[in-house]
Amino acid sequence: MPAAGVVMIVAVLLIVAAVVYFLVSTIVALRKITSGLDDAIAGVVQIIEKSAPVKEVVDDINANLDAGVDLLEGLLVKKAGLRDAIGLVDGLYPGAGAAGLRNVPESGQIKPPRIGGVYTRGTLTLARLGREAPIAAASPNGPALRNPAYGSGAAGTLYPLGRPAHSDSLPRSPVIGSDSPVQYDPEVEVGAPRKRLPATAGALSPESEGS
C-alpha cells in the first residue's frame, strides 16, 4: 500500500474519532438538559395547580372590599356631607383628599377644609384642661400630656379622706322683700359701705345670730 493511502486512512480515522467524541459529549449535555427541563416542568406544573384558585379568591376578596368602601364612603358623605367628608379623609391621610372619593369623581376638585387641624387643637385644649382626653396618649409630637388611664385618680388626691359632703349648718339665705328683717336703700348704699339699719321687730340681733 502506498504511503499516501495510509496517511489518508489515518486522516479519515482522526476525523471520525473527533466526530464521535464531540457528538457523544453533546449527547451527554443534552441528556442533562432534558433532566433539568423535566424538573422545571414539574415545578411549573405545581405552580399552575397551586395558583389556579387564586384569581377567584382574590376577586371575591376585592368584591367584598369594594362593597365595604362603597358603604363607608356613602355613609360618610350622607352623614358629614361631601365637603366635610373630604376634609375628614384629608385630615386622617394628608393629601388623600386630592384623590377624592371613588364613587364621587368630582370630589377631588373640592378644597378640603382643615377639619383635622381643628380637632387636634380642640383635643390638646381638653388635655391641657385636665379633661378626659384619651387621644392625648397618641399625641404625635411627644409624650401624653396626662395619663389617660389614671387621669381621674389625680383629682382624687385632692381629698385623701374622701370627698366631703355638704356642711351640716349652711348659712341661711337672705330674706328679701319689703318684710325682710334687714332693709337697705340702694340709692344710699351704692358706692359706699353698707349702712346698718336699726333692727326691726322680729329681726335677730348680731349676738343672737352668732349663737
Binding site: F22, S25, A42, G43, I47, K50
Partner: peptide, 27 residues
C-alpha cells in the same frame, strides 16, 4: 464546528438547573 455545538449545549445546562431551582422555590 463540533466544539461549537458542544460548548453551546454545555452552556445551557446551568441555565436549565437555575430554572428548575426557581420553579421549585416558586412552588
Amino acid at each position: 464546528l463540533l466544539r461549537g455545538v458542544l460548548s453551546a449545549a454545555t452552556s445551557i445546562v446551568p441555565s436549565v438547573g437555575a430554572i428548575s431551582g426557581a420553579a421549585t422555590q416558586g412552588s
